[in-house]
Deep mutational scan, measured.
Amino acid sequence: VTTYKLVINGKTLKGETTTKAVDAETAEKAFKQYANDNGVDGVWTYDDATKTFTVTEMV
């Protein structure tokens, strides 16, 4: 189990959260659900070296 981080660069919501998951795919599903629940829709990137997902909403 690995800890993954999500950085949110939203128009109205900004911040970070973490989740523990067995792999990046599982973490991504959890983060996308979290973003969807919070009304964040944007471009996703993932950095495997730092285990960090970033979602950026276009203005």
Rank of each mutant, 00 (worst) to 15 (best):
A30S: 08
V1T: 15
K32R: 13
T12M: 11
D48I: 10
D48R: 06
T3S: 06
N36I: 15
K20E: 15
D48Q: 10
V40M: 06
E57G: 05
N36H: 13
V7D: 03
K14R: 13
I8A: 02
D37P: 02
T45C: 08
D37E: 13
V55T: 02
K32T: 04
K11L: 13
W44N: 00
K20I: 15
V22G: 11
Y4R: 00
L13S: 06
V40T: 03
K29E: 06
F53E: 00
A21R: 03
E25L: 11
T56E: 09
K14P: 06
E16Y: 12
N38R: 13
T52H: 02
K11A: 08
Y4E: 01
T45W: 06
V40S: 02
V1R: 05
A27E: 00
A30T: 14
E16N: 07
T56Y: 09
T26F: 07
T50L: 07
T19L: 13
K11F: 14
Y4A: 01
I8G: 02
V43L: 14
V55H: 01
G39A: 08
T26W: 06
N36C: 12
G15W: 14
Q33G: 05
K5E: 03
V1C: 14
T17Q: 10
M58D: 13
A30E: 12
I8H: 03
K14N: 10
T17D: 03
D37F: 07
Y34D: 01
T50S: 09
K11C: 15
E57Q: 12
T3G: 04
V22A: 11
Q33V: 10
E28N: 05
T50C: 04
A24P: 11
T52Q: 04
D23F: 04
T26E: 10
T56K: 05
T45S: 12
E25Q: 13
T45D: 08
T26M: 14
T50V: 05
E28F: 15
K20G: 07
I8P: 01
E57N: 05
L13N: 08
V43W: 08
N38V: 14
A30D: 06
A21G: 04
V59Q: 13
K29S: 08
T56N: 12
E16L: 10
L6I: 03
V59A: 12
T50W: 04
T17I: 15
K11Y: 08
T17F: 14
T50N: 07
T54D: 03
G39V: 03
D48C: 05
M58T: 14
T2E: 12
D23Y: 04
T45V: 12
Y46W: 03
K29W: 07
V1S: 09
T26C: 06
G15A: 13
N38D: 03
Y4H: 02
G15M: 15
T50K: 07
N38K: 15
T56W: 08
T3W: 10
A21V: 04
A24H: 12
D48T: 08
N38F: 15
T19I: 12
T52N: 02
D48G: 06
E28D: 05
T18I: 07
T18V: 10
T17V: 15
E57H: 06
T18E: 15
